[in-house]
Design a protein around this nucleic acid. Structure first.
Length: 416
DNA sequence: TGTCCACTGGAAGGGAGGGCTT
DNA sequence: AAGCCCTCCCTTCCAGTGGACA
């Protein structure tokens, strides 16, 4: 490095740049649980009034909590979990087990997971596969019953579990108290789908929903309070321009009052500002953040798709690029067969591909609606709902798809 | 009014892949 | 090694269907 003037030194910008985050940026992550949850006092005290029974050594009623994403359900429950642990630290009569059923979504998985939380000895752990479910249940039951204790088991995203694996586990868990001599178990189910209880066995439904609560969405004002509270800890005074927090709140309020979204907007805006070496967070950063979040979300989902789904998605995109009117399952399947042949993977049946299409629809990557074309038959009408070029680029990054660069499908879709 | 198309989506089950048990 | 168990991904089979057209 020759003796350059500081002006043209590569480190110049770094030296000049200012650290925007005062502390750990975790504070702006939705998973962070602050000491106080604004605008959730009512829900928290209602929950507390039910759960306090546990501290008296008796079983609290089971609770079902409903509310859209980002309405503070998980945060409130975890917050109470911590409070209970504090209150119980001397007596140690209560155990709090939290589990996310989107990650653990099988009967076996749920039982195994709860069981292993209670087993310290590594050698006694329940293996993630191999045993019969009944055996896992028996171990779990015995383990729970060892002490006179109250177990509060939280099943977050419980609807996912029910849709995937039915209600057998819930049946057993909600009835486990009949098999216990000493301990007591109470369940807290968290769901953002109000209707999932319709899929439950009536007995399970009534046992699980002894208490029900709904978390309403936050409005823009409330979101502002939440953001201000966290921003005050995360940033120094004056770093956040005045209009930034109201803007984040307003944008998130449009998305059914999603606090998670509001926090993400603010955090990503700050990150963008930091990367640009700006010393303030402005509205422009928030708008950029909004686009980035949306695009990242798509990119991430597409990237993590299994190969076969990627091929199906690619087929849809290629067809759409040709733009020949409506796109049906048959068209997509035709192209899909072609592509699979080109890249040399096994070709799935149309039945299976229908399911993959439905999955893509559920992920929000495409839109697929069943429609009847009279004599033309009844089938899904498909259109992608992501930016074509970007998505295609992401798909092409997959080694599997190398052979498809610049590939033009041959299948002629019949024109309208 | 009925026909008939091009699928849809449920049911059942196979088999591979993880792993435990004896 | 043989015999289990549980889950995932997939196939086979098939009754069912909305609505344009004859």
């Amino acid at each position: 490095m020759g003796g350059g003037h500081l002006e043209d030194n590569v480190f110049k910008q770094y030296l000049k740049s200012k650290q925007l985050f005062r502390r750990n940026r975790e504070i702006l992550r939705p998973s962070y649980i602050p000491d106080e949850l604004p605008h959730r006092q009512q829900q928290i005290s209602q929950l507390a009034s039910v759960l306090v029974t546990a501290l008296k050594g008796e079983r609290p009623s089971n609770i079902l909590i409903f509310g859209k994403t980002g309405t503070g359900k998980t945060a409130s429950v975890k917050y109470l979990g911590n409070e209970i642990k504090k209150a119980d630290s001397e007596l140690n009569k209560v155990s709090f087990v939290y589990m996310n059923c989107e990650i653990v979504d099988t009967q076996y998985g749920v039982l195994q997971n709860i069981g292993n939380r209670l087993i310290d000895d590594f050698n006694e752990r329940i293996p993630f596969t191999g045993w019969s479910t009944e055996r896992v249940y028996n171990i779990l039951r015995d383990k729970i019953d060892e002490e006179k204790k109250v177990f509060i088991v939280v099943l977050d995203e419980i609807d996912k579990l029910v849709y995937k694996s039915g209600d057998d586990v819930l049946y057993h868990l909600s009835k486990i108290n009949d098999d216990l001599q000493n301990a007591r178990v109470s369940l807290i189910g968290i769901s953002n789908d109000l209707k999932f209880t319709e899929f439950l066995d009536p007995r399970v439904k009534s046992r699980l929903g002894e208490e029900k609560m709904v978390f309403p969405p936050y409005n823009a004002e409330q979101l502002k309070d939440i953001l201000s509270q966290r921003a005050a800890v995360a940033f120094d005074d004056g770093v956040v321009e005045e209009s930034v927090i109201p803007l984040c709140s307003a944008l998130a309020a449009q998305e059914h009052g999603d606090a998670r979204r509001a926090l993400d907007l603010l955090r990503v805006a700050a990150e963008i500002a930091e990367r640009n070496y700006d010393d303030k967070i402005t509205e422009a950063h928030v708008h950029k953040a909004k686009n980035k979040i949306e695009l990242d979300c798509v990119t991430e989902t597409v990237k993590t798709l299994p190969t076969q789904s990627k091929l199906v998605l690619m087929s849809i995109i290629l067809n759409e690029e040709k733009d020949n009117g409506r796109l049906t399952t048959g068209d997509v399947y035709g192209t899909y067969r072609e592509l699979s042949h080109v890249v040399g993977v096994s070709i799935l049946t149309q039945r299976r591909v229908t399911d993959l299409i439905s999955e893509l629809d559920m992920l929000g990557i495409i839109r697929a609606r069943v429609k009847s074309f009279g004599r033309g038959g009844r089938t899904k009408e498909i259109e992608s709902s992501v930016p074509l070029l970007e998505t295609k680029r992401v798909l092409e990054e997959d080694e599997m798809m190398y052979g498809l660069k610049n590939y033009k499908p041959k299948t002629q879709t019949t024109l309208m």
